[in-house]
């Protein structure tokens, strides 16, 4: 069986003995950023390069990906939409809110939004959830890839505003964008501590793994919003 399902919407194809990560193409025939299209049993897949996508790397690192076909996802740091397009593929019945700060990269992202029905583009600063609270509903998953020095704070702030009860937060922490010289291990420890206790929101870190060899000095984190069971 050459196609192996790794998670809803994420597949691993076997191409001549080489394993390739892919998502099922929502818009058959269209390649978003020059990635390879592979047809198998009349189904078209888009190859997903984990070296270009931290989420892709997290899949291969066996994270328990919380994105389901009907999830609402808030994607912070959408950039030109390379990874967003794969998230969009996964969400056959869901919606992704793609927040990006730079107008230049938003230009590319909009082209993607024009093609796909389930991406909502938002040109805004992820530091200021106030500025898009009138657009974004409560979401099941927040995925964050912003490479900012205060990214733990950004994640916590957005979780506070937008994460539904028991919703999941996924983020990739780039140690070099926090401190270029300090040891990555130390930074990761500190950032995870901040996420768990640093802000007035209770996040429970479920998984943490470094994303090498796909991304140097990056840590993938999966956390969940902790809600006390109301009786």
């Amino acid at each position: 069986m050459p196609v192996e399902d790794m998670h809803a919407g994420i597949h691993e194809l076997d191409i001549g003995g080489r394993k390739v990560l892919a998502t099922r193409n929502m818009m058959p025939g269209m390649s978003v950023y020059g990635e390879r299209l592979i047809v198998e049993d009349d189904v078209e897949y888009r190859q997903w390069d984990p070296g270009r996508s931290k989420l892709g790397a997290m899949v291969l690192k066996n994270f328990d990906i919380p994105i389901e076909p009907d999830s609402a996802v808030l994607y912070l740091g959408a950039a030109s939409g390379t990874t967003v397009s794969h998230v969009s593929d996964m969400l056959t019945d869901g919606l992704v809110y793609a927040v990006e700060f730079s107008p230049r990269t938003m230009r590319d992202l909009i082209q993607l939004c024009d093609q796909r029905p389930n991406i909502i583009p938002i040109l805004a600063d992820a530091n200021k959830p106030h500025s898009y609270a009138h657009i974004v509903e409560k979401v099941d998953v927040i995925y964050q890839d912003v490479a900012q020095p205060n990214q733990a704070e950004i994640a916590a702030l957005n979780s506070k505003y937008f994460l539904a009860d028991h919703g999941h937060l996924m983020l990739s922490i780039k140690s070099r964008s926090i401190d270029t010289v300090a040891s990555p291990k130390k930074i990761f420890k500190e950032e995870v501590r901040k996420l768990e206790n640093g802000f007035d929101i209770e996040l429970e870190v479920l998984e943490r793994k470094e994303l090498d060899p796909f991304h140097e000095d990056h840590l993938g984190v999966l956390a969940r919003l902790f809600v006390e069971d109301e009786q």
């Binding site: 919606l95 938003m106 909009i110 991406i119 909502i120």
Partner: peptide
């Protein structure tokens, strides 16, 4: 809701750009 929100946000982002 999805269809209208998408149209509105794409318009808004385009005009901001």
């Amino acid at each position: 809701y999805d269809i209208l929100l998408r149209e509105v946000c794409i318009k808004a982002a385009k005009s901001q750009i």
